[in-house]
Design a protein around this nucleic acid. Structure first.
Lengths: 202, 202
DNA sequence: CGACTATGATACTCGCCAGTAAGTTTGTCT
DNA sequence: AGACAAACTTACTGGCGAGTATCATAGTCG
């Protein structure tokens, strides 16, 4: 029971850090192509070419194409969860919602986030689809929870929480359809403007 | 110049009406599968099977798979244009927007409309993508125009028209992600609730 | 130095499915 | 009747790209 942490390599930590960095580079490259060309329009040869490597190398880091897409999407979802659901306690419900929405908007102006919307969940196998729906559902449930508590503490007006959460999600997704050239140039401005729209809805 | 209408067949009108009806049936069947399984997840054999025919028959009505998808999407867009952009004159800008939004919502609760969102435009070839973007852009432009005129006649509050139009589009698209079993059962109710959300935004 | 693992490239297989070639049936017109 | 077109079918091809088997190189450790 003692040396589970102790590995045969003196610097496995370093090794796996490098490997993780490379995996991240693959995710980033793939996300860019998925967002531009869609899932089935993107070939693994294309992903590899963008990184100056060859296709089989990708399989050293990921089991298959779908796993790469799932990694892109998970990365985006987790970024939202991290930035929003963690440090947003003891705020009013209304401000909690702005925190989540802001984090979501930030992600949606990056390639990994764009994958969430530009690539259809239907391109996944049922297993992967379930996994992604779970993450999406988690965020949606959180928004619904915030809406409900906001109706209690009076910072959010009365509404149908399911419909409103769905609508808010729709607004947040919308920014991912903007041309990346524009979102890159006007990121803070667009973030504020979309948040202002959300503000009118709640 | 006289007999362009007069064809060699005594009942070509009937013939082409039947043919059109069959083409519509194909569109409907395909739209259902595209919405459930995505574009690349749907095979033409599957579409044909759902209609009790065989794949080559589809090619008697459409040139290729993409053209079927485009027909699905065009049908949805045109339905919006018909119901909204035609009979909505001499209303206030605010009510014009509700007219368009209502028509859009109606479409988005049907299979052809779901295709617009559940199937990525990236699954199309550049040519088809351009065509669909054109139609989408037409509706978006109309919404922007209504918003602008609403800011003049005072029925819509001041806002950034591009961002707001984009956000409204996002809300309208959102309903297409609802399970069809639920939208079928609660169509009028959901229509009103989503319109109520739009009402808060403008 | 020599054994071993991590990392990568070259060169393939193989299934799926869009699209096609060619033939068959059904109705319609003269 | 018999010729012709519309409407469909059966039986195929062909390519693309995901995934793999196998070999090459480079650090790393005793």
């Amino acid at each position: 029971m003692s040396t589970v942490e102790q590995s045969p390599f003196h610097d496995q930590g370093e090794r796996s850090r490098v490997k993780q960095a490379k995996a991240d580079a693959i995710i980033e490259a793939a996300a860019g192509l998925f967002a531009e060309q869609g899932y089935s329009g993107t070939t693994l040869d294309g992903v590899a070419a963008r990184l100056g490597i060859t296709k089989p190398t990708l399989y050293y880091y990921f089991a298959n194409k779908e796993e790469i897409l799932i990694a892109c999407m998970s990365s985006a979802y987790e970024s939202v969860v991290e930035h929003a659901l963690v440090g947003a306690k003891n705020l009013s419900a209304r401000d909690q919602l702005f925190t989540v929405a802001g984090a979501y908007l930030d992600v949606m102006m990056q390639d990994t986030g764009r994958c969430l919307v530009r690539v259809s969940h239907l391109d996944l196998t049922p297993a992967g689809r379930a996994k992604m729906s779970g993450l999406k559902g988690k965020i949606d449930a959180e928004i619904q929870k915030i809406l409900a508590s906001g109706m209690s503490d009076g910072t959010i007006r009365e509404c149908d929480v399911r419909v409103t959460a769905s609508a808010i999600g729709g607004v947040l997704n919308a920014v991912s359809f903007w041309k990346s050239s524009e979102t890159n140039a006007r990121r803070p401005e667009l973030r504020e403007k979309f948040l202002a729209v959300i503000a009118t809805m709640i």
